[in-house]
Design a protein around this nucleic acid. Structure first.
Lengths: 146, 146
DNA sequence: CTCATAAACTTGACTACTCAAGGAACTCTC
DNA sequence: GAGAGTTCCTTGAGTAGTCAAGTTTATGAG
């Protein structure tokens, strides 16, 4: 088997393992999945803590319907609310609540810890993590779905 | 956000994009998903083209029930058959059929192509693909579920 | 031999997506 | 100002996995 195919398959396996670690940690401490956390994080980074669902979908690499479904439980537990747009009645913003923002801060600490554990010395050198990040970025997956 | 967390999130996005590319290519040409292909590939690498379902689960990073469900459509389209063990009536081997082996060979060519495209020059240097592979291997995900 | 425990597998109920279709609201052209 | 087309979002149906529970078979201890 070629290096290229081998690398691609390893990437899939590594991601599955990584997601499971994050899900276990975030789920255990905060009751959310990595996908939930990522969504909240993007919202937290957006001005005003709110985004149109369409933009959220693009930022997360999901479809619009995936976002609709992902938001349901987050709205139910009060981390996110739905806000209409004054100008355009088609758009419904997803907006972090106060609770959402507070909980996100705690989740972020957990996620940082988990990530640091994952890339801990001595297995990982100081410069290797950014190196991995730059290689992964070249693989795409950022920006709009094609 | 730390480099570590940023890198972890990039890995998730890169994998999603990669899986979509493989699914599109393999699905279009051979009617299978990347997960199907990976399963068939592992079977193909095993002696006699057959494995116990439990070992297949471990090799793929799935649960036993995931394997049961993944095999159903592959048996239905005749790429894999179920074979009992003579010694132990609990075990049911998953075994590549002749057709399965032939189709796998074609799929492998497609997968290799897709992987080469993904890591094509000039964006990717000769030495960078094995480098990425080695970084990913350090992240684990190979071997038994913990 | 018999009983307890363990291993291999399947099944039901669930989650998290996808795609395709559709409703409602906006915008553009005449 | 009326359609025609486009955008935003939701919904129904389907796929791919999870976990927990159950069945069947094997094994080891007395």
């Amino acid at each position: 088997m070629s290096d290229a195919l081998d690398t691609a398959l390893r990437l899939v396996r590594a991601q599955a393992a990584l997601v499971r670690r994050f899900d276990a940690r975030l789920g255990g401490l905060h009751g959310v999945s990595l996908a939930d956390f990522t969504l909240l994080l993007r919202l937290g980074q957006a001005p005003g803590g709110r985004m149109r669902r369409v933009d959220l979908a693009e930022a997360l690499g999901l479809t619009a319907s995936g976002v609709t479904r992902a938001l349901v439980p987050l709205e139910r537990i009060g981390l996110v609310t739905r806000e209409p747009d004054v100008r355009d009645a088609r758009v419904a913003y997803a907006s972090l609540t106060g609770t959402g923002r507070a909980r996100l801060k705690e989740m972020l600490a957990t996620a940082e810890e988990t990530a640091e554990d994952l890339f801990a010395a001595p297995a990982w050198g100081e410069e290797e993590v950014p190196l991995l990040a730059s290689l992964l970025t070249r693989l795409g997956g950022t920006g709009p779905r094609t």
